[in-house]
Amino acid sequence: MSKLNEEVVADVTPRIRRTHLALFVKDPFASAPWYEEVLGMKVTARGERWVFLSFGKKHHDIALIQVDEPEHATRGTINLQHYGLEIEGDLEDLRRLYGMLLRKNVEVVKTTDHKVGYGLYFHDPDGHRFEFFLETVHDDEEGKRLLGDYNAPSNNFDLKPL
């Protein structure tokens, strides 16, 4: 390979259009209704050991895949910390979502002030942590500055559920 080609290859970086998440679960068919009821997703495809779900804009956003030997599956200490879902709306909408989680007996982990928005953390039936987050700082450069100035905070925030 020529030096010019090596430089071009070294400079290549991905330009991400969107993301999706694939999670190992004990029983994707038992877990899927939670994703439909709590996150408002729709099942778009099923296989022998998996279920694909969508928020409505693409064929799938989250895949639930049955772990090998589900009867022996345990949650490890090294795992996905959380998957953030930015919501549309305002603080009242976040409060309504908090109330909905409580009414559906979803385990709420914490509510936080990140200085660039507010987070509401909760677990799915298999213990994966999710976050509904509400951005309050919409200028990305200002957001980067605040995260740096405050050391990417996750301060306790008293969010009152509706």
Results as ranks from 00 to 15, higher is better:
Trp34Ala: 06
Leu120Ser: 10
Leu162Ile: 05
Ile62Thr: 00
Arg96Pro: 03
Leu120Tyr: 11
Val38Thr: 10
Gly99Pro: 08
Leu159Gln: 11
Glu7Lys: 14
Phe132Asp: 06
Leu4Gly: 04
Val43Lys: 02
Val106Cys: 04
Leu21Phe: 07
Ser31Gly: 04
Glu69Arg: 15
Arg15Asn: 15
Tyr121Gln: 13
Pro28Val: 07
Lys3Gln: 14
Ile16Glu: 08
Tyr118Cys: 07
His114Cys: 03
Gly99Tyr: 09
Asp113Arg: 03
Gly76Glu: 10
Asn79His: 00
Glu142Val: 14
Gly127Val: 00
Thr13Ile: 15
Asp90Tyr: 12
Val137Phe: 13
Ile78Pro: 00
Leu102His: 09
Phe122Ser: 09
Trp50Pro: 06
Gly117Cys: 13
Asn79Glu: 01
Leu120Asp: 10
Asp90Thr: 12
Met100Ser: 09
Val137His: 12
Arg49Pro: 00
Glu37Val: 12
Arg95Pro: 01
Arg145Phe: 15
Lys26His: 12
Phe132Cys: 07
His114Asp: 03
Val38Ala: 10
Gly84Gln: 08
Arg129Ser: 06
Tyr98Ala: 10
Arg18His: 10
Glu69Ala: 15
Asn79Asp: 01
Glu135Arg: 15
Pro125Leu: 02
Pro153Phe: 12
Arg49Met: 05
Arg46His: 00
His59Ser: 05
Trp34Met: 07
Tyr83His: 11
Met41Ser: 04
Asn155Ala: 15
Ala32Tyr: 04
Glu6Trp: 02
Leu101Asp: 08
Arg46Thr: 01
Ile65His: 04
Ala63Trp: 01
Leu94Gly: 08
Leu39Val: 09
Leu159Pro: 10
Tyr83Leu: 11
Val67His: 12
Pro33Gln: 13
Ala22Cys: 02
Ala45Cys: 11
Leu102Phe: 08
Pro161Phe: 01
Tyr83Ala: 12
Val25Phe: 00
Gly119Cys: 15
Asp149Val: 12
Gly119Asp: 13
Leu97Glu: 03
His82Pro: 06
